[in-house]
């Protein structure tokens, strides 16, 4: 065990893992995060807290993570490279660990132009690959990016993302291998709607033996409405939403039920894909549906350690 976080215990036990996602509010109302976390309690093993997702200012992921620690839950703090340089990131990592946070997910971060501060400076002092390596060095070598020693060891379960729907497609599995080489402990993927492409990516992942080195959690998003599906298809960078799914939703009399069904079917299928160690359910702004999806997908109850 590295940190002994709940997520790590589930993954190391070999049980098919299930993580959820919470979006911090555009306010200082910590109770909103707690409310959403309560909805997911018992249905997921760990809770991603996004870091100003799509470059929109929100309560910090670390602050929200600390709220979850207080609730006895296992947060996964997202850290992007967009807003902070290596000094700030390392400082925040120390702070997160001091607050009892055990899982950190490394991301590059959407460009600031997508958010509510489009004229902000994009920092990008380091990239997501370097962030993984920096955390690994802080943990395994007790050394900061600049070479100085930490005064005492820290423990972090290091996560990263990979997007099978980005290009060049043929490089995407190799890029995942590079993240493993950089020092990652677990992977969460971008949301999967195009299952064929995901399976082609997984084939390559297995060929390279990456699934044996790190657990891969496949990302899913339940579609709440036709509008939401179309928005994701046309406006969210890095996603592919096939027309068949849009058509299926369009034809369904009850869009929400169809959205749930599509998500549940996807999870049930992902459980059979060799090398997929779990799912990451991203139902931001539809948190209340997670228990139903998890239950219908046969992932409830969650293991207790």
């Amino acid at each position: 065990m590295i940190t002994g976080s709940n997520l790590e215990k589930v993954l190391k036990s070999g049980i098919f893992a299930c993580t959820g996602e919470l979006g911090p509010p555009k306010s200082a109302e910590g109770h909103k995060v707690e409310h959403h976390a309560e909805m997911l309690r018992g249905y997921v093993d760990a809770y991603n807290l996004t870091d100003n997702q799509t470059a929109i200012v929100r309560t910090s992921s670390i602050a929200c993570g600390a709220l979850l620690v207080r609730m006895g839950l296992d947060p996964i703090i997202q850290i992007t490279c967009r807003d902070r340089n290596r000094i700030a990131i390392q400082s925040d990592v120390l702070g997160a660990v001091a607050l009892g946070i055990k899982n950190i997910l490394c991301l590059q971060g959407d460009h600031a132009k997508f958010g509510n501060e489009p004229t902000a400076k994009n920092v990008n002092d380091i990239d997501s690959m370097q962030l993984i390596r920096m955390l690994k060095n802080m943990r395994d070598e007790q050394v900061f990016s600049g070479g100085e020693k930490l005064e005492a060891p820290i423990n972090i379960f290091i996560g990263a993302v990979e997007n099978p729907f980005a290009d060049p497609f043929e490089y995407r599995a190799y890029r995942l291998a590079k993240k493993v080489e950089a020092g990652v402990d677990f992977i969460q993927t971008q949301a999967i709607f195009d299952m064929d492409r995901f399976e082609r990516w997984m084939e390559k992942v297995r060929e390279l033996g990456i699934h044996k080195k790190v657990p891969i959690l496949a990302g899913v998003i339940p579609m709440k409405s036709l509008g939401a599906a179309r928005y994701m298809k046309n406006n969210v960078s890095g996603l592919i939403v096939p027309d068949e799914l849009i058509d299926r939703l369009k034809a369904a009399p009850d869009k929400k039920e169809e959205g749930i069904k599509i998500c549940v079917e996807a999870i049930q299928h992902l459980k059979t894909v060799e090398g997929v160690a779990g799912v990451h359910v991203m139902a931001v702004a539809w948190e209340e549906i997670v228990p139903e999806i998890v239950t219908r997908a046969g992932l409830y109850p969650r293991p207790k350690f």
Binding site: Q108, H111, N122, N124, D127, A166, D167, Y171, R175
Partner: peptide, 15 residues
């Protein structure tokens, strides 16, 4: 756009 040294990021699509 992100001055990455280990790119491309997940936002790269269709070139």
């Amino acid at each position: 756009s992100k001055s990455m040294l280990n790119g491309p990021c997940g936002g790269s699509q269709y070139g």
